[in-house]
Design a protein around this nucleic acid. Structure first.
Lengths: 266, 266
DNA sequence: CGAAATTTTGATCACGTTCAACTTCAGTGG
DNA sequence: CCACTGAAGTTGAACGTGATCAAAATTTCG
């Protein structure tokens, strides 16, 4: 559905259809879980988006050490936030999935502390931090939603610290697979017990602080133990309970934003 | 200075003095770096704070798995956010310093994914998430500031993932010391090249995913190489450049919140 | 001052890295 | 369509780092 037909429908007042358009958008889906968005809310949000961009696999979206001041809402595709170290090693700090925001946290600190690279072709909706901030002044709801998203992000990072810090290699892997699955389910991009794993073993090993051979062995072991199955990039949890038990996995579920009883000035 | 004298001064219109009171507050200091706070802003902020609490060392402030819906602004003292694993190991996810917010991110997800324990006596200013959200509706600036704080938090976590994932033990330690120092400097609680290290080696080893003996050896090595000196809980950087070089340290400096040219309704 | 917590040192060993070779797969141009 | 190329996945052997366990020394605190 293109821009023109969208405007036509709005003109016709077919608000039902407008909401439908947004319903598939993974970013809007995430926001909807935090609090209700009215039609005017959605229109305002739409207004701050400058362009929609498609980006090719392997392109860097953010560069470590440079200023970045955009918010890019991921409509489709995957990316990895990473840092290259002196010794040539790479640590992937987290994976960027549909519904995530490139520029969080890069755009909120004076210069990005990590790079972001597309690991598949992607489509992004771009908006300047400035105009999003302006939106937050007009509609405070968006400021709160941004806080909630950032807090969710922080919670995911926290789990990742636990992964690399104290979990055994096999636990880390199990945890990563479950986390990605849960996040994909949240934006309607995964089945109940399976999903298309968009990452190579090298990416996963750099995320989990393991060597590629060892990650491979752990993956083999999960298969051997009958917990998962992988064919043609599709990962299936054969024994989901066992995997969750192994990883001690608890999904990060955002709380809803409290609605004040009365909004009064002071 | 107590509540009564504060009110008296406000009544007298001695606004200068009121701002002075807040100037020492580490949380307000952090907010001030993100954007300007007017006197009415500060008064509104003050109004949402329910009580000031003092908490004894070793007390748990947040419990893994339970709902938590307060924001606690740390006025003084230190805490650690951690998770206990099945095997009895503990991973400290980050340290909570003056000016930080207990409840970020715990209060933003349905149930806390980590516990928080006081590692020294602390004094906290408590506010319910609900009333803070209400404040954000009245004064959108606070919603933005909350987002910026959460993003900063995320950026710190990201560095921590890199620490435990790919940095060598000695690099991790150097990085941790520099990070804590930088964060303390930001709230006026550290000298240029020294600070009171409030954490035991056990805490630091659990933060860095190392064993206590190994952390101890790395600490010894940093001393032996003439990079740092420690006496009576005070850590001094003898050769700050060398430590920064070793850790590849870049401090997380928050960007300022953009001020929209014109705030118009849509 | 006594008890507990914390720091320091040493010896052994397992886990996961490293390096290398090989296989399989996907994409591209002849 | 197949041959070619580079990327991704798989397997094995040897090595080294940091964990583990234990005990002593030191500091902190009730």
């Amino acid at each position: 559905m293109n821009d023109l037909s969208l405007r036509t429908m709005v003109a016709r007042g077919s608000t039902r259809a407008l909401k439908d358009i947004w319903r598939d958008d993974p970013f809007v889906m995430r926001l909807q879980k935090l609090g209700d968005l009215t039609l005017p809310d959605l229109q305002s949000l739409r207004a701050v988006i400058e362009t929609e961009l498609t980006v090719k696999k392997r392109r860097d979206l953010v560069l470590d050490g440079y200023e970045f001041c955009k918010l890019c809402f991921v409509k489709s595709g995957f990316a990895a936030r990473y840092k290259l170290l002196r010794n040539g090693k790479r640590q992937i700090v987290n994976f960027v999935l549909p519904g995530d925001v490139v520029g969080l946290p890069s755009s909120f600190i004076d210069r990005a502390a990590a790079s972001v690279v597309a690991v598949s072709d992607m489509t992004l909706q771009i908006c300047s931090l400035e105009s999003f901030a302006a939106l937050c002044y007009r509609r405070p709801k968006f400021g709160l939603m941004l806080s909630w998203l950032a807090a969710q992000e922080a919670a995911n990072y926290a789990e990742h610290v636990i992964d690399v810090g104290r979990r055994t290699p096999i636990e880390r892997l199990a945890h990563l697979l479950l986390e990605i699955h849960a996040r994909l389910v949240m934006v309607g991009k995964a089945a109940d017990n399976a999903f298309n794993l968009p990452f190579t073993q090298e990416l996963m090993s750099d995320a989990l602080g393991l060597s590629v051979p060892h990650l491979n062995r752990m993956l083999t072991r999960l298969r051997a133990e009958g917990m998962i199955a992988v064919n043609e990039r599709r990962l299936e949890f054969i024994d989901p309970k066992a995997v969750q038990q192994l990883a001690q996995f608890q999904p990060v579920r955002p709380a809803r934003i409290p609605i004040p009883d009365e909004i009064e000035l002071d």
